[in-house]
Simulated assay, not measured.
Amino acid sequence: MTMKRWIDILFAISIGLVALIPIILCASLFFILYREMPFYVSIRAGKQARCFRIYKLKSMRQSFYKDGKPLPDHMRITGFGRFMRKYSIDELPQLWNILIGDMSLVGPRPLPVTYTSLYNERQRKRLSVKPGLTGLAQVNGRNAISWEAKFEMDVQYVEQQSMKLDGAILFQTIGKVMRGADISQENHVTAESFQGTTE
């Protein structure tokens, strides 16, 4: 087992025990306020595009038009959900993903499986490592920058990864989370869907 994996496990256990309190409180409050299951489960692409289930605290309601199509994000997100997203509380359940080995502390963020076929050759390099709870793109703009910029930083991380770089990213992440910075793209609740890169 690598040093990086040992650090992931120790962090997931130690921080996870503390995180149980806000996870339970936020999950309970979401259920009380909106009478919906408080956890969101999604299939994401991990290392080598292997599919896995990612866990998050739900920040949006399950609301639909009469024809059954879901309402747009800005109509479904809740005030409480905005608060959780601002301080990344909704991401805390992913400590479980780290513990069981689907994710790492640091790496490219895990994205929907449907994006995999849209990557160009260079962008696909982001799939050569485990996805992370935070990453180089998250401390350099997060959702406030373009997909192309995020993917380029993901590839840079893959090419330059080291324990020193991981430590620097984790340190910067703390400041970003405390400030609630770069949560969404301009004029979007979160991030606009990736449609592929025009060469």
Rank of each mutant, 00 (worst) to 15 (best):
M1I: 15
M3A: 14
R5P: 08
W6V: 15
I7M: 14
I7V: 15
D8L: 02
D8N: 13
I9F: 09
L10G: 14
F11P: 02
F11Y: 08
I13H: 01
S14V: 10
S14C: 11
L17W: 00
L17N: 02
V18H: 05
I21D: 09
I23L: 14
R35K: 14
E36W: 13
F39R: 12
F39K: 12
Y40G: 14
S42Y: 05
A45F: 05
G46A: 10
G46I: 12
R50I: 01
C51Q: 14
F52E: 15
F64E: 13
F64K: 11
Y65K: 12
D67S: 00
G68V: 08
G68M: 05
P70V: 07
D73C: 10
F80I: 10
F80K: 04
R82L: 06
F83N: 04
F83M: 09
M84P: 13
R85K: 11
D90S: 06
D90W: 07
E91N: 04
N97S: 12
N97F: 04
I100R: 13
D102Q: 15
M103S: 01
M103L: 08
S104M: 01
L105H: 04
P112L: 05
T114L: 09
T114G: 03
Y115P: 00
Q123G: 13
L127N: 06
V129I: 11
K130Y: 03
T134E: 03
G135T: 07
Q138V: 05
V139I: 13
R142N: 05
R142G: 01
R142M: 01
A144S: 12
A144C: 02
A144Y: 01
I145E: 03
I145Q: 02
S146W: 00
S146V: 00
A149Q: 13
K150F: 02
D154F: 14
D154P: 03
V155T: 09
V155N: 07
Q156P: 01
K164F: 14
I169F: 03
I169Q: 04
Q172E: 09
Q172T: 01
T173K: 06
I174D: 07
R179F: 13
G180Y: 02
A181Q: 12
N187M: 05
T190Y: 03
T190H: 09
T190K: 08
A191Y: 00
E192F: 00
S193A: 06
E199K: 15
E199C: 11
